[in-house]
Design a protein around this nucleic acid. Structure first.
Length: 598
DNA sequence: GTGAAGGGCCAC
DNA sequence: AAACGTGGCCCTTCAC
């Protein structure tokens, strides 16, 4: 298919092109780059299209001219590009891009401007799929699925650093932008009919904050991290030696050449050795199964010790330091905005959402000289969401009263006064409270508390008798699995169930998911809304978003701005929460610190 | 050699 | 099948 496009490489044509496009309500938007990482490569092309008329802007000539005039900031301050920056930043035109985070990062970093009014066809496609893992969501897949057209992506990996781009490259670049308005129109029909308008708006408005967060990066002190790693490696060596000695005593064919080396990381070898020592090894050698044996069998205790430090020095070792970007000295992780069907983020390379909670690790993430971290997290937000959704009087009252929630639950479940609640009773209530959000059953509760199945069942009965409408809401959620086959979060995010009706365990899993998804999903909705509100509030300040962990936001700012920033963060989080939860107060714990530690 | 699967374990 | 939900990373094992 031939398409009309214009290649632009000088200031005058750029100005004219931007004038032409700024009356358009919708613009397909795409970029071509020499690398995937904006800190490593150059932005080569920016493409903008109304669907019929496509402008392909070659930035290389602009960069080359800038270098001649000694423009140290490259494209960022080049006055010739002002019309382009203005058009991209404007909120008057919707910028339609596929996986817009990528394009936004490049524009933000290399052109120095935000992209206003983003529409992400990738996120839209994910929302429509509602967790269906069979579907792929690359641009070519989405175009095929929604328009029935085949898109040739073979030029995607071509050489975008070449002095002269080929006609084929430029046409490819133009085509990707030109098709976007049509893709959006088709997707939007489905978004409308599926009731996904609100959640798509939420997601689209979150793209720029996340793009900025990834560019900002999180500062990690290499020295501190290495110190901690060193301690772990020393411990690992010590435990490995001790464990090796203890285990080899149980290996029957202990060789004449000395003890038999066992691979301590091998499940099979360790299990064999334990059996040889007469340890009754359970079905799995996971920590929770081995724990009860640790007292009787010192070798099991040693194995658990070894595992802990081995995990620490492998998963949280040298590798994470390799992600520090030399240009910034910071970690720029990859956040997937719809990482789970519930709407939660997923994070990788590295995963900053699974850094151990211990101070030894978290204190390595810190604010550079002259700056502070503002650390804010929602207090028991999932339970508050459940209370709000289920409209249970006691449940709501427990939060409205502002008392220690777990202690209040304990008092109600055990029928005693709050001040008489023991630490054990509070711990019980806490585990119950968290468990119900995941669809906890009596047998599992018995396992984790050490109660007999009958006692566990009785405790759960009393718990649900305390919060009858919560019980009802959860039962209803489970019941809807077979009737409705899908559920939604507060923003309307949709998740379909997949299960085999003849398989009880698969049905049970779907029912637990049905209980959990609206709660976890709404929590994710709230966080995303907060990110947008916060982004707008801190734009003109020294504050920068540096990390998010499901119900926690971490912002770095100038030390002088810390107090003001903490108020902004708290306010944005509260306003976001109140958009989704009305009957229960939302609480945010916020503090200012030099390090990411409680 | 590479990659998928499975076990194990970190986070919320 | 930990009958408690969502992820990612590391290691071993096993197939290609």
């Amino acid at each position: 298919m031939e398409i009309y496009f214009q290649l632009i490489s000088d200031a005058e044509s750029l100005r004219k092109a931007c004038d032409e496009l700024k009356t358009e309500p919708f613009l397909g938007f795409d970029v071509e780059t020499t690398e995937l990482d904006p800190y490593k490569g150059d932005l080569r092309l920016v493409q903008l299209s109304n669907g019929k008329n496509t402008k392909v802007i070659d930035l290389k000539p602009f960069r080359d001219r800038g270098q001649v005039t000694g423009d140290r900031n490259g494209l960022r301050t080049n006055p010739e590009l002002a019309p382009l920056r203005e058009l991209l930043a404007s909120t008057k035109q919707v910028k339609i891009a596929h996986n817009a985070k990528f394009d936004c990062k490049w524009v933000r970093h290399h052109l120095g401007t935000e992209v206003g009014n983003v529409y992400d066809t990738y996120l839209a496609s994910l929302l429509i799929a509602a967790g269906d893992t069979d579907r792929r969501h690359g641009l070519a897949d989405v175009v095929q699925f929604f328009l029935g057209q085949t898109l040739d992506k073979s030029e995607q990996v071509s050489n975008w650093a070449a002095d002269e781009l080929t006609h084929s490259q430029i046409e490819y670049a133009a085509r990707d932008a030109a098709i976007m308005p049509e893709v959006r129109a088709k997707l939007d029909e489905r978004i409308e009919t599926e009731g996904l308008k609100r959640v798509l708006k939420l997601e689209n408005e979150c793209v720029m904050p996340i793009a900025e967060m990834e560019l900002n990066g999180f500062y990690l002190d290499q020295g501190r991290w290495r110190e901690q790693l060193g301690r772990m490696q020393t411990a690992q060596k010590k435990f490995a030696g001790e464990l090796q000695d203890m285990l080899s005593a149980g290996v029957a064919q202990a060789s004449l050449f000395g003890r038999t080396e066992i691979n301590l990381d091998s499940q099979a070898q360790v299990t064999d050795a334990l059996l040889g020592l007469g340890v009754p090894v359970p079905d799995t050698t996971r920590a929770w199964q081995l724990q009860p044996l640790a007292e009787e069998y010192p070798v099991v205790a040693k194995l658990l010790e070894y595992r802990t430090v081995a995990k620490a020095s492998s998963s949280f070792g040298e590798n994470i330091l390799e992600f520090i970007e030399p240009k910034t000295g910071r970690i720029h992780a990859d956040f997937r905005q719809i990482g789970a069907p519930t709407g939660r983020f997923a994070c990788s390379k590295p995963n900053l959402q699974q850094i151990p909670h211990e101070t030894e690790y978290r204190r390595c993430f810190l604010a550079p000289e002259g700056r502070k971290l503002v650390i804010a997290d929602y207090s028991q937000v999932e339970l508050r969401i459940l209370a709000d959704f289920s409209d249970d009087k006691n449940f709501i009252e427990a939060f409205v009263s502002g008392q220690d929630f777990h202690a209040t639950t304990a008092a109600q479940v055990f029928g005693i006064k709050t001040e008489d609640v023991t630490a054990d009773q509070r711990s019980f209530a806490k585990r119950l409270n968290f468990g119900v959000v995941y669809g906890l059953g009596a047998s599992r509760f018995a396992m984790m508390t050490g109660l007999s199945p009958a006692q566990a069942e009785d405790t759960l009965r009393r718990y649900f008798a305390t919060y009858p409408k919560m019980d009802q809401w959860l039962r209803n959620a489970a019941k809807n699995v077979t009737a409705e086959r899908w559920t939604r979060s507060g923003s309307g995010r949709m998740a379909r169930f997949h299960f085999d009706e003849n398989d009880r365990s698969s049905l049970g899993a779907a029912q637990r998911y049905a209980k959990n998804m609206p709660i976890q999903g709404t929590s994710a909705d709230i966080l995303k809304r907060a990110l947008r509100l916060l982004h707008d509030d801190i734009r003109p300040t020294t504050a920068k978003l540096v990390n998010i962990v499901h119900d926690e936001i971490i912002v770095e700012c100038a030390a002088d701005d810390a107090e003001k920033t903490s108020q902004s963060v708290e306010s944005a989080m509260l306003r976001a929460g109140e958009e989704f939860v009305s009957k229960v107060p939302i609480r945010v714990d916020v503090h200012i610190a030099d390090e990411w530690a409680k």
